[in-house]
Amino acid sequence: MTALLTHADRLLRPTTRLTLSGRTLVAMVVLFGAFYGALMGLYFDPGESPRWLQSVYSATKVPMLLLVTFALALPSFYVLNTLLGLAGDFREVLRALVATQAGLTVVLASLAPFTMLFYASTTDYNSAILFNALMFATASLAGQQLLKRFYAPLIARDARHRKMVRVWIVVYAFVGIQMGWVLRPFIGDPAKPTAYFREGAWGNAYIEVWDKVLTTTGLGTPRR
């Protein structure tokens, strides 16, 4: 436990070089992600009993969200790096990317108390979702800063890495948003029973958002 926190501390400090092994970094993603997920899933309506099972489900789903998105985005990123002539640096690139994920979960875990306070003070399911979205957004912003820092030595060596880091952020976000949608629910909907995956259509996050935009602005009606 102490070792884990020491690792987290070493990861976040800007001065020290990235010394953690890949296995430690992945373990950090799993543990810190599970921590936030477990707390995230604790939301329940005043009228019902606590959703412990949802908490366990969400604890597995947050690390899954990050790691599966990572695995899906990696092959094309490797090919693009190779095409730009950066294959020699890929081992370091990989470490920088995994370290970013680990850092992101550490930040996320540190935000968990806010989520708990928010859960303790709201009875509205939608605002609970929105608050979590805000926490994830905050953690991703911090993650981007970390990514820039871990990439700095690579960029200093070869300016082409700057381009690649942008590509990574775009691809990762594109896949990650949909992954978050597919892995729903992270927070138990009071109107529905606890479930690992939501019943029925998986749907597409981008189309759902577009339909919401259409209906709320009154510019049109969804086509389907």
Binding site: A73, V175, M179, N204
Partner: peptide
């Protein structure tokens, strides 16, 4: 082919 996993993932989760 390296974009294939992303395409397959969206295919598996999208009905549009």
């Amino acid at each position: 082919a390296s974009l294939g996993p992303i395409i397959a993932f969206f295919a598996a989760s999208t009905t549009s």
